[in-house]
Amino acid sequence: MADASALLEPQIPALRRYAYALLRDHDLADDLVQDTLERALSRWAFRRDDGDLRAWLFAIQRNLYVSRWRQRRRRGTPVALDEAPLPGVAPRQEATMEVHDVLAALDQLPEEQKSLLLLVGVEDFSYDDAARLLGMPVGTVMSRLSRARQRLRAIVETGRTTLLRRVK
């Protein structure tokens, strides 16, 4: 297992990013990544040598999140959209406000759409890889991606209207 460390470590920043986007809590996100890595190490010998390590790890993490973490999170205190910290945001210009809380808006999407937007839009998985990872045909990936972006637009739009109303 000597090579596990060298192969796994470069993948950790992206796994942490995905976990954080799903959980929106730094400690919980690292708990999830730790679970993922432990699981990966215990299954290391079953991994396909020619397989895509990154996709394998993301699949493990996503499955763990769906099977265990989502419930744990739901039991926790939900962070209201307004209270969610928005790092580095100066909500002065219209253009900034329009997009500034995409991460918070993402939170309101169902897990599948959320994962899809993260895996394709942030982690740069190909549509085919995303389809395999999420266990759906690639055609479904395309239509759900479109729907997810449509919903995200609507959520951000609504949030913006609320924000503007409050400012007035």
Binding site: P13, A14, R16, R17, Y20, A21, P87, G88, E98, V99, H100, V102, L103, L106, L117, L118, G121, V122, R149, L152, R153, V156
Partner: peptide
């Protein structure tokens, strides 16, 4: 708009990465 939101999401998660 979708492109901009995509870029914004990446931007928000950059620090984490």
């Amino acid at each position: 708009l979708e492109q901009r939101q995509r870029a914004a999401l990446r931007g928000q998660l950059e620090a984490k990465f």
